[in-house]
Simulated assay, not measured.
Amino acid sequence: MIGKLILEDGSVFAGEVISRERAVGEVVFNTGMTGYQEVLTDPSYCGQIVTMTYPLIGNYGTAAVYDQAIKSYVRGFVISELAGDPSNWQAECSLPQYLLSRGIPCIHGVDTRAVTRRIRSAGTMKGIIVPAEAGAEEIKELFGRLPEIEVVAEVTPKEVYRMPAEGPRVAVLDYGIKRNILNSLAKAGCDLTVFPADTLAADILGRDFAGVFLSNGPGDPKDVPKSIQTVKELMGKKPIFGICLGHQLLALAAGADTYKLKFGHRGANHPVKDLATGRVYITSQNHGYAVDEATLDGRDYVVTHRAVNDGTIEGMKHRQLPIFSVQYHPEAAPGPDDNTYLFDEYMTLLRKEG
């Protein structure tokens, strides 16, 4: 079935759609050669149409073990060549079957290089996926829908739950956490209690937790002011470790600022330099916002990690308090295990402060 991806600047890219499902969202691109299922189930992509820059997608199929959440939150999927006959002993179904069973709009046979070049030139923008017969009025109506700002509320859990272990008790503020992050914290030895994003600081400080973890999540960090206030009230009370959105919320709670990147960092091949050791790590990233370094001046924070490609902040820590964060995803293992030392550092901090 012929379809098209239309960007809000009027650019049109033809392809084939696997269903008549329409998609509306912010169009972004991911440079990973693998990990398409993890992308589809990463809550940080909530509200977005994801373009995969690697041409062949779906060749190893899908399996439940790779899901990062209980469902997919992406609004649409754009690929060049869709593999319908996977070759992998773990495969439980093909990618087309996976997409159809979850109602994820997908357009394939698209010139994804051209899509990516357009986004890199003009910046991320709203887009839609529609069948070829979609008329002008429908297209206008789809583009007229209000932008999504409450994406964290969509992905956060509704109730508190536990992942018990024999180790320090950690309160996890879940803004859209990936399963691999929870597993990495548990593997390091943390006894986890996971809280919804709108949890108040008093609900955490009133219980015997050794530390607090701030998770990844979707959207603009400034769209969740209540979460920023909670983080502000937790600072100096408990050791804190933040990843991705958690890193940005920590910066805002400290009085710094964040800004939107032109086309973001999304992929499994982003080099990041540890400024303490000089070592460069290959990292997995998924974010559209960054911390404004100039606004960190005079706020007792030091930059610990920096993106090699564009120099943006990829990590920071407080000079006196047991607080640190990174912008990238150490649990995603593109190295494959180069960055898991951060979870061990957090455990060391918990035991020291405890």
Rank of each mutant, 00 (worst) to 15 (best):
V110S: 12
D111N: 15
S101V: 12
L99V: 09
V110M: 11
P105H: 10
L100M: 14
R118S: 05
I119H: 04
R118K: 06
I104M: 04
D111F: 13
Y98N: 05
D111S: 14
Y98Q: 06
T112R: 12
T116D: 08
V115E: 03
C93D: 03
V115Y: 09
R117V: 14
I107P: 01
T112Y: 13
R120G: 00
L100E: 06
R117A: 14
T116W: 01
R102V: 01
P105D: 05
P105R: 08
P96C: 12
S121F: 02
I119C: 06
H108C: 10
C93N: 10
D111E: 11
G109S: 08
Y98D: 02
R120E: 12
L99H: 07
E92M: 13
Y98W: 13
L100A: 12
R113F: 05
L100K: 15
L100F: 08
P96A: 09
L100I: 14
S121M: 01
H108Q: 04
V115R: 06
Y98A: 01
S101A: 15
S94T: 13
P105Y: 10
P105M: 09
Q97N: 13
R113H: 11
R117S: 05
G103W: 12
V115F: 12
E92C: 10
C106N: 11
V110L: 12
V110W: 09
V115Q: 08
S94D: 02
R118A: 03
G109H: 05
I107F: 09
Q97I: 04
R113E: 00
P105S: 13
S121C: 00
R120N: 00
P105C: 13
R118D: 00
L100C: 10
